[in-house]
Protein backbone atom coordinates (compact mmCIF):
# COMPACT_ATOMS: atom_id res chain seq x y z
CA UNK A 1 0.00 0.00 0.00
CA UNK A 2 1.16 3.52 -0.76
CA UNK A 3 2.19 5.31 2.43
CA UNK A 4 0.59 8.66 3.28
CA UNK A 5 2.31 11.29 5.40
CA UNK A 6 1.82 14.89 4.29
CA UNK A 7 -0.04 15.83 1.14
CA UNK A 8 0.07 19.32 -0.33
CA UNK A 9 -1.46 20.29 -3.64
CA UNK A 10 -4.44 21.40 -5.67
CA UNK A 11 -7.81 20.70 -4.07
CA UNK A 12 -10.99 20.52 -6.15
CA UNK A 13 -14.32 21.62 -4.65
CA UNK A 14 -17.27 19.31 -5.37
CA UNK A 15 -19.89 20.54 -2.89
CA UNK A 16 -22.48 17.84 -3.60
CA UNK A 17 -23.99 15.48 -1.00
CA UNK A 18 -24.32 11.73 -1.55
CA UNK A 19 -21.81 11.38 -4.40
CA UNK A 20 -22.26 7.67 -5.08
CA UNK A 21 -19.71 5.13 -6.24
CA UNK A 22 -21.62 4.64 -9.52
CA UNK A 23 -20.94 8.32 -10.23
CA UNK A 24 -17.29 8.00 -9.19
CA UNK A 25 -16.63 4.94 -11.34
CA UNK A 26 -19.45 3.72 -13.60
CA UNK A 27 -20.01 0.02 -14.34
CA UNK A 28 -18.49 0.39 -17.81
CA UNK A 29 -15.12 1.11 -16.22
CA UNK A 30 -15.12 -2.35 -14.69
CA UNK A 31 -15.46 -4.40 -17.83
CA UNK A 32 -11.78 -4.82 -18.52
CA UNK A 33 -8.48 -4.43 -16.75
CA UNK A 34 -7.31 -2.45 -19.77
CA UNK A 35 -9.67 0.44 -18.91
CA UNK A 36 -7.92 3.60 -17.69
CA UNK A 37 -9.83 4.08 -14.43
CA UNK A 38 -8.44 7.58 -13.91
CA UNK A 39 -9.62 8.70 -17.33
CA UNK A 40 -13.09 7.34 -16.54
CA UNK A 41 -13.30 8.93 -13.07
CA UNK A 42 -16.69 10.72 -12.79
CA UNK A 43 -17.22 9.65 -16.40
CA UNK A 44 -20.87 10.65 -16.80
CA UNK A 45 -20.44 14.08 -15.23
CA UNK A 46 -17.09 14.72 -16.90
CA UNK A 47 -17.70 13.90 -20.56
CA UNK A 48 -20.32 14.48 -23.22
CA UNK A 49 -21.75 11.54 -25.13
CA UNK A 50 -19.25 12.12 -27.96
CA UNK A 51 -16.37 11.79 -25.48
CA UNK A 52 -15.54 15.49 -25.38
CA UNK A 53 -15.06 17.13 -21.99
CA UNK A 54 -17.79 19.08 -20.26
CA UNK A 55 -15.91 22.35 -19.61
CA UNK A 56 -17.93 23.21 -16.48
CA UNK A 57 -17.03 20.02 -14.64
CA UNK A 58 -14.57 20.93 -11.90
CA UNK A 59 -11.80 18.47 -12.85
CA UNK A 60 -11.94 19.72 -16.46
CA UNK A 61 -11.20 23.30 -15.42
CA UNK A 62 -7.54 24.26 -15.93
CA UNK A 63 -7.16 25.23 -12.25
CA UNK A 64 -8.25 21.83 -11.00
CA UNK A 65 -6.95 19.37 -13.59
CA UNK A 66 -4.07 18.30 -11.39
CA UNK A 67 -6.02 17.98 -8.14
CA UNK A 68 -4.71 15.68 -5.44
CA UNK A 69 -7.46 16.49 -2.92
CA UNK A 70 -11.24 16.48 -3.35
CA UNK A 71 -13.55 18.49 -1.06
CA UNK A 72 -17.03 16.99 -1.21
CA UNK A 73 -20.45 17.01 0.46
CA UNK A 74 -21.75 14.60 3.08
CA UNK A 75 -22.05 10.82 2.65
CA UNK A 76 -19.31 10.64 0.01
CA UNK A 77 -19.00 7.17 -1.54
CA UNK A 78 -22.65 6.21 -1.02
CA UNK A 79 -24.02 3.06 -2.66
CA UNK A 80 -22.17 0.20 -4.29
CA UNK A 81 -19.25 -1.44 -2.48
CA UNK A 82 -17.03 -1.25 -5.57
CA UNK A 83 -13.44 -0.64 -4.49
CA UNK A 84 -12.84 0.53 -8.03
CA UNK A 85 -14.22 3.92 -6.92
CA UNK A 86 -11.14 4.29 -4.69
CA UNK A 87 -8.80 2.98 -7.38
CA UNK A 88 -10.24 5.45 -9.91
CA UNK A 89 -9.72 8.43 -7.60
CA UNK A 90 -6.14 7.35 -6.95
CA UNK A 91 -5.41 6.68 -10.63
CA UNK A 92 -6.50 10.22 -11.35
CA UNK A 93 -4.11 11.42 -8.67
CA UNK A 94 -6.46 12.08 -5.73
CA UNK A 95 -4.92 10.96 -2.42
CA UNK A 96 -7.34 12.53 0.08
CA UNK A 97 -11.05 13.34 0.16
CA UNK A 98 -12.32 15.91 2.65
CA UNK A 99 -16.04 15.65 3.48
CA UNK A 100 -18.47 16.00 6.40
CA UNK A 101 -19.12 12.24 6.29
CA UNK A 102 -18.39 9.11 4.28
CA UNK A 103 -20.37 5.98 3.50
CA UNK A 104 -19.07 3.09 5.61
CA UNK A 105 -17.88 0.73 2.87
CA UNK A 106 -16.13 3.46 0.91
CA UNK A 107 -14.43 4.68 4.10
CA UNK A 108 -12.95 1.23 4.73
CA UNK A 109 -12.00 0.67 1.10
CA UNK A 110 -10.15 4.01 1.04
CA UNK A 111 -7.89 3.07 3.94
CA UNK A 112 -7.11 -0.33 2.42
CA UNK A 113 -5.53 1.47 -0.54
CA UNK A 114 -3.88 4.51 0.97
CA UNK A 115 -6.54 7.06 0.06
CA UNK A 116 -7.17 9.21 3.13
CA UNK A 117 -10.80 10.11 3.97
CA UNK A 118 -10.76 13.25 6.12
CA UNK A 119 -13.87 14.22 8.08
CA UNK A 120 -14.39 17.96 8.60
CA UNK A 121 -17.54 19.77 9.68
CA UNK A 122 -20.00 20.86 7.00
CA UNK A 123 -19.18 24.51 7.85
CA UNK A 124 -15.45 23.89 7.43
CA UNK A 125 -16.01 22.06 4.14
CA UNK A 126 -18.14 24.97 2.92
CA UNK A 127 -15.43 27.47 3.92
CA UNK A 128 -12.72 25.46 2.16
CA UNK A 129 -14.93 25.14 -0.91
CA UNK A 130 -15.53 28.89 -1.01
CA UNK A 131 -11.79 29.52 -0.68
CA UNK A 132 -10.89 27.05 -3.44
CA UNK A 133 -13.44 28.52 -5.83
CA UNK A 134 -11.93 32.01 -5.61
CA UNK A 135 -8.27 31.50 -4.65
CA UNK A 136 -5.48 32.18 -7.14
CA UNK A 137 -3.75 29.06 -5.88
CA UNK A 138 -6.49 26.58 -4.91
CA UNK A 139 -4.30 24.43 -2.71
CA UNK A 140 -4.59 22.70 0.63
CA UNK A 141 -2.47 20.53 2.91
CA UNK A 142 -3.49 17.31 4.64
CA UNK A 143 -0.98 16.32 7.29
CA UNK A 144 -1.56 12.82 8.66
CA UNK A 145 1.40 13.03 11.01
CA UNK A 146 -0.21 15.93 12.90
CA UNK A 147 -3.79 15.11 11.85
CA UNK A 148 -4.28 18.66 10.57
CA UNK A 149 -5.94 20.15 7.51
CA UNK A 150 -4.42 23.45 6.42
CA UNK A 151 -6.69 25.28 4.03
CA UNK A 152 -8.16 28.74 3.54
CA UNK A 153 -5.53 30.14 5.88
CA UNK A 154 -6.40 28.11 8.96
CA UNK A 155 -5.51 24.77 10.48
CA UNK A 156 -8.17 22.37 11.74
CA UNK A 157 -7.67 18.98 13.36
CA UNK A 158 -9.18 15.73 12.13
CA UNK A 159 -9.30 12.27 13.64
CA UNK A 160 -8.85 8.81 12.15
CA UNK A 161 -8.72 5.45 13.95
CA UNK A 162 -5.20 5.04 15.39
CA UNK A 163 -4.50 1.77 13.58
CA UNK A 164 -5.61 3.24 10.26
CA UNK A 165 -3.31 6.20 10.75
CA UNK A 166 -0.35 3.99 11.58
CA UNK A 167 -1.01 1.72 8.60
CA UNK A 168 -1.15 4.71 6.25
CA UNK A 169 1.94 6.41 7.66
CA UNK A 170 3.95 3.24 7.23
CA UNK A 171 2.20 1.74 4.20
CA UNK A 172 1.24 -1.43 6.13
CA UNK A 173 -1.27 -3.88 4.72
CA UNK A 174 -4.05 -5.23 6.92
CA UNK A 175 -3.68 -8.77 5.58
CA UNK A 176 -0.27 -9.00 7.28
CA UNK A 177 -1.87 -8.25 10.65
CA UNK A 178 -4.51 -10.94 10.04
CA UNK A 179 -1.93 -13.49 8.94
CA UNK A 180 0.05 -12.92 12.13
CA UNK A 181 -3.03 -14.12 14.03
CA UNK A 182 -3.16 -17.42 12.13
CA UNK A 183 -2.69 -19.48 15.33
CA UNK A 184 -5.80 -17.81 16.82
CA UNK A 185 -7.71 -18.53 13.64
CA UNK A 186 -6.60 -22.18 13.67
CA UNK A 187 -7.59 -22.58 17.30
CA UNK A 188 -10.97 -20.98 16.69
CA UNK A 189 -11.70 -23.24 13.76
CA UNK A 190 -10.73 -26.42 15.57
CA UNK A 191 -13.13 -25.62 18.43
CA UNK A 192 -15.85 -24.31 16.13
CA UNK A 193 -15.86 -27.51 14.07
CA UNK A 194 -17.02 -29.28 17.21
CA UNK A 195 -19.66 -26.79 18.35
CA UNK A 196 -21.05 -25.87 14.92
CA UNK A 197 -20.22 -28.83 12.66
CA UNK A 198 -22.94 -27.88 10.16
CA UNK A 199 -20.94 -24.82 9.15
CA UNK A 200 -18.18 -27.03 7.78
CA UNK A 201 -20.21 -29.67 5.98
CA UNK A 202 -21.34 -27.81 2.87
CA UNK A 203 -21.99 -30.27 0.05
CA UNK A 204 -21.50 -28.88 -3.39
Amino acid sequence: MQAFTVLHGVAAPMPIDNIDTDAISPMAAGRSTSVDLGAMLFNNARYNEDGSEKPDFVLNQPRFRRSVILVAGQNFGFGSSRERAVWALMKFGIRAVIAPSFADIFYDNAFQNGLLPVVQSAERCAAITEFLQSATAPVATVDLERCIVLAAGIETPFSVPAERRLALLEGLEEIDVILRMAPDNDGFEAADRKTRPWIYSVTT
Binding site: E83, I105, D108, N113, I175, V177, I178, L179, N185
Partner: peptide, 20 residues
Protein backbone atom coordinates in the same frame (compact mmCIF):
# COMPACT_ATOMS: atom_id res chain seq x y z
CA UNK B 1 -22.52 -7.33 4.89
CA UNK B 2 -20.82 -5.97 1.81
CA UNK B 3 -17.05 -5.57 1.55
CA UNK B 4 -14.52 -4.21 -0.93
CA UNK B 5 -12.12 -6.22 -3.08
CA UNK B 6 -9.21 -6.00 -0.61
CA UNK B 7 -11.36 -7.61 2.07
CA UNK B 8 -12.56 -10.19 -0.47
CA UNK B 9 -8.91 -11.21 -0.73
CA UNK B 10 -8.59 -11.28 3.08
CA UNK B 11 -11.51 -13.71 3.33
CA UNK B 12 -10.19 -15.91 0.53
CA UNK B 13 -6.83 -16.22 2.27
CA UNK B 14 -7.90 -16.36 5.92
CA UNK B 15 -11.70 -16.87 6.16
CA UNK B 16 -11.57 -13.95 8.59
CA UNK B 17 -11.88 -10.15 8.62
CA UNK B 18 -10.42 -7.51 10.88
CA UNK B 19 -13.32 -5.22 11.63
CA UNK B 20 -15.15 -3.09 14.19
Amino acid sequence: WGIGTTEVMHVMATQALLTR
